[in-house]
């Protein structure tokens, strides 16, 4: 077909009606797209799960030389294996979910597709929502695999309707509060391109101060307050009380943890979105969205 210059210009100038696709459908489209890409790496998925299971197996052996005294004093059931498996699985879940949001942005920048996506009618918020939702969905897969491995190795979970309901509520708050941190990390990666300090700080600070492998009572008093700044601390404490002790939403400790998580989301979410907008606008002004 012979096209004249005028025809090409006319073709490019043609206004194709868009719309009719809401933000929710777009977010779902991102989830489906990412799932399709993810599913092509089946070997990677299997091996990744296997490697995360080695952590669980490691703490199975560590639990053989541990005395449960500190756990009893902190109000948990005397079972370090269950305590550590919940800690490692949940920390790994939120860390991979939070960090992979930054990774997704890096990946789009690296492949040169970031500008293409953002030059379409899709807003960055929808892109972020879709990406982060996918990461948390996939992360659940690893979380369940770790807990499943733990069950095989003998962890004891107290599952009754009351504790399951409380776990459900706490998990929703866990995901929501860490999405907020993921957005902060995404804002940093847009500017810094590599070495996202939010995700790194989140990783090592939570490992140290959120009680992933030991009850917070072991920390000196002057260090305990650091853990209070992280939603993982409250989530882990709540989830452990439900799954190890069988406590429900009527327990004062669970109510306290739930309220603190809600407070974290209400306070940090607006700041997180504001910070992201600042970073995004500044990167766009510099024309550096696609740089890596």
């Amino acid at each position: 077909m012979d096209l004249k210059v005028e025809d090409i210009v006319k073709y490019l100038a043609e206004n194709i009606p868009r719309g009719g696709v809401g933000p929710f459908e777009k977010a779902v489209a991102f989830i489906i797209r990412d799932f399709k890409i993810w599913w092509t790496y089946k070997l990677w998925i299997t091996l990744d799960i296997l490697s995360s299971l080695t952590f669980v197996a490691t703490y199975y052996f560590v639990s053989m030389i541990i005395t449960p005294q500190a756990l009893i004093e902190a109000g948990y059931a005397a079972d370090f294996l269950t305590f550590s498996v919940i800690g490692i699985s949940v920390q790994h879940y939120v860390f991979t979910s939070v960090s992979s949001l930054s990774d997704a942005i890096r990946e789009e920048q690296w492949n040169g597709t970031m500008e293409t996506i953002l030059s379409s009618t899709t807003s960055f918020r929808v892109f972020l929502l879709g990406e982060s939702a996918f990461r948390f969905i996939i992360g659940s897969y690893f979380l369940l695999a770790s807990l499943g491995m733990g069950v095989l190795l003998g962890i004891r979970l107290v599952l009754n309707p009351t504790s399951i309901l409380a776990v459900f509520v706490l998990t929703i708050l866990l995901v929501a509060s860490h999405m907020v941190i993921g957005v902060l990390g995404a804002a940093m990666i847009l500017k810094l391109k590599q070495g996202d300090p939010i995700v790194w700080a989140f990783s090592w600070l939570t490992q140290l101060f959120s009680g992933v492998l030991y009850p917070l009572g072991l920390l000196p008093d002057w260090l305990k307050w650091v853990g209070n700044a992280f939603p993982l601390t409250y989530s882990l404490d709540g989830l452990r009380r439900c799954l190890m002790n069988g406590e429900g939403l009527d327990s004062p400790m669970i109510i306290g943890n739930t309220l603190k998580l809600i407070l974290f989301i209400v306070v940090v979410l607006p700041f997180s979105l504001w910070f992201f907008k600042k970073s995004y606008d500044s990167t766009r002004r510099e024309g550096a969205l696609g740089q890596y």
Partner: peptide
């Protein structure tokens, strides 16, 4: 910044095993 964060996480991992060690039964070890 990545280097600094890596150094800090090094420090954190050692301190973390210090606290894990507080739970270990010395006789078992």
């Amino acid at each position: 910044s990545w280097l600094v964060m890596d150094l800090l996480s090094t420090l954190a991992s050692v301190v973390m095993y210090y606290f894990v060690g507080l739970q270990v039964d010395p006789h078992q070890l």
